[in-house]
């Protein structure tokens, strides 16, 4: 099968067989919001922020294959309301205090909330979990209070670094990221690992020590642009 076309919010998009809706959208400069998906990593389909309506069914755009003549709804009030709910769940599941967070301004969760127009607290209760901080490693700290369980670090370490320093443990609301050992110091994690790099962890959970606030507030990723800007600007080119 050669290339085929389908529609996202009325725009004709061409896709290659095997491409997901999100991959095809990225190529033509249509941004579909996402948190657990990251270019170059296996798709996980866990955060559900990329939910779109495809052929009338709600699916995750990061894992759903594109199909000929599919009609996809992305930026609709209904879909964005679902996304706000999901982002709200992620906020209230952990402990997020943006004003004192190293990631503020670079954080994809925070930026997603801005993009979706979340300007006030949701109706959701705060779960206020007690999560330990792991500062055992000389160069890396993990503040699990901000982890959104996106699994990007797990896949990056496993598939790119070939190490497997992170994994998921537990089930349900207790499922969380753990180091491959009693703490991070007892793994072969290095600050030069791709998994530890700034682009992998979307929030302020994985922190490279002695690098804090290297880029001042005001010059950070999402200070001037909405999240998704890098993809959307392709459309104007």
């Amino acid at each position: 099968m050669s290339g085929f076309s389908f529609q996202i919010d009325g725009v004709e998009v061409t896709a290659k067989p095997g491409q997901t809706i999100m991959e095809a959208a990225d190529e033509v400069g249509i941004y579909i919001p996402r948190l657990c998906d990251h270019e170059g990593l296996r798709h996980q389909g866990g955060c559900r922020v990329c939910t779109v309506k495809a052929g009338g069914r709600s699916v995750a755009a990061c894992t759903q294959p594109a199909a000929p003549d599919l009609v996809v709804e992305n930026e609709t009030p209904h879909i964005n309301k679902l996304r706000r709910d999901l982002v709200g769940m992620l906020f209230n599941e952990g402990n997020h205090l943006c004003p004192i967070c190293e990631a503020s301004g670079n954080c994809e969760l925070q930026a997603m909330a801005y993009r979706l127009g979340m300007t006030e607290p949701t109706k959701f209760p705060y779960l206020e979990p007690c999560r330990p901080v792991d500062a055992s490693h000389p160069d890396i700290a993990l503040d699990n209070n901000r982890c959104i369980s996106c699994g990007r670090c797990v896949r990056a370490s496993q598939d790119v670094d070939g190490k497997g320093i992170f994994g998921y443990v537990g089930r349900g609301i207790h499922r969380h990221i753990a180091a491959n050992g009693p703490d991070l110091r007892h793994t072969d994690a290095e600050v030069t690992d791709f998994a530890i790099s700034a682009e992998v962890c979307p929030v302020g959970c994985i922190i490279r020590k002695r690098e804090g606030f290297a880029r001042p507030i005001g010059e950070r990723d999402y200070d001037d642009h909405l999240i998704g800007y890098d993809i959307e600007k392709k459309r104007d080119e």
Binding site: G45, D85, G170, G172
Partner: peptide, 21 residues
């Protein structure tokens, strides 16, 4: 359902806790 959710995806992992509350 809170006890039995696998925890893989946000709405079921977190949303069911909110519903229970």
């Amino acid at each position: 359902f809170v006890h039995e959710s696998c925890g893989y995806c946000t709405p079921c992992r977190v949303g069911n806790v909110f519903l229970q509350k």
